[in-house]
Structure formats: structure tokens, C-alpha cells
Design a protein around this nucleic acid. Structure first.
Lengths: 96, 96
DNA sequence: TTGCTATTTTGCCAAATTGCCAAGTAGCTG
DNA sequence: CAGCTACTTGGCAATTTGGCAAAATAGCAA
């Protein structure tokens, strides 16, 4: 692939890629409702906590969420709020 | 992962996943400007034509583009136009 | 300190993705 | 028909991803 394309689209593609997994998309939506600790998210998702933690770190690396420590738990927060709007297109846009 | 999450978010995640590659994101943007044949897209991307064709088929499977035959070439077209709007969020939203 | 809870990191392995090449398919032209 | 162009598909190796379990890290409380 040409370097110029890589340069122009990599960062943006990384954000889409991070949302391109059902669990991570769910996590983003859930965090859109309220800030939540990993333990609670783990309960909702049903995967091993290490797996959920890894998904969250992918979302954080993409700049979609961030986190703060509160006592002995880490509270995640949806940083890129417009992700919630994107879904409308991706979900209902098919066929249009 | 819980089946309910899989059911609710898989289709939408698949669309994001399809856009989660620099080349495919570029292709979607390019097709947003005008309908284009594979040969021309190949020239822009710089990958083997088979690679570009495969990327396009991923986009088509996700419902993002479609195609029509015109003589001996295949013209691709951006079907899910709102993809162009998504990018604004993904590109400029970082840090907000 | 020890123990407990919450989270991340590491190791491991199966599965998926990426990209090239070669082969196959489809339409045009002579 | 043969030969050409345009595109897709199959196969392969290299790389990445996804998920679990175990080990490591961090903070709280006794």
C-alpha cells in the first residue's frame, strides 16, 4: 500500500478497527450511559476479566475511552462521545 | 461473550471492522467522490489488483459498497454514504 | 506486615487477517 | 475461435487477534 494512504488513514482506521468487535462496541455503548468499573463490565459481558481488560485497553489506545483510578478500581469513561452517533449510520444505514 | 451482546452488536461491529483498515477506508472515501473501476483504484492504492479486489469484496459484504459490471470492468460505488460523516468524528473527535 | 479485591500483564494456542502469486472467470475484439 | 483486458478466487506464509489461565501489580483494611 502507498505510504501516503497509510499516513492519511491509519489513525482513523484504527478507531474503526477498535469498534469492530461486538464486545468492544458493547463496552463503548455501555460507557456511553455511565462511567463503569471493569468488574461491573465483566459481569455484563460474561468473558474472563482479563479479556475484558484487554478489550478496554484497545479502546483506550484508539482514544475512544479513558480511565481513572478510584480506590482499588478503575473507572472507564467514554471519551469519544460521537461514537454513539456513528452507530445510527452503521446500524440503520444498511440498504440505504 | 454473552449471546445477547453478540446478537445486538455483531452486524454493526462488522461494518466498523470493514472500515478498520487504511486501504479499505481510503477506498470508501475515494468511492465517495465518484464511482470507480477496480483498475483505477488499484493504481491509486499501489497494491496488487487481487489485494484491492479482496478489500472491495470485504466492503461489499459489509454493505458499504456495491458494484455493477460495465463492459469488462466492474464499477464500484459507495452505497452507505453516511460513512463519509463517520470519519469526521473518528478523525477530529480524538482528544475531545 | 498479611490478606483481600480489582485490574493488568504474560504466556500460550487456535483462529482470523493480510498480501502476494497463480489460476480461473467474464467480456470485448478481431 | 484466439487473444486480450478486467476482475475474482484459491492457496500459501507471515502476522495479528481473541480468549483463557496464571502471575504480577496496585490499593485498601485489619
Amino acid at each position: 500500500m502507498k505510504t501516503s494512504i497509510l499516513d492519511s488513514y491509519s489513525a482513523e482506521a484504527a478507531a474503526f478497527k477498535a469498534l469492530g468487535h461486538p464486545t468492544r462496541l458493547f463496552l463503548a455503548h455501555q460507557l456511553g450511559k455511565r462511567d463503569t468499573c471493569v468488574c461491573e463490565l465483566t459481569g455484563m459481558v460474561g468473558d474472563d476479566i482479563s479479556t475484558v481488560s484487554k478489550h478496554l485497553s484497545v479502546l483506550r489506545a484508539a482514544g475512544i475511552v479513558d480511565s481513572v483510578r478510584k480506590g482499588n478500581q478503575i473507572i472507564y469513561r467514554l471519551k469519544l462521545r460521537c461514537v454513539l452517533d456513528l452507530s445510527v449510520c452503521a446500524r440503520f444505514g444498511k440498504g440505504k
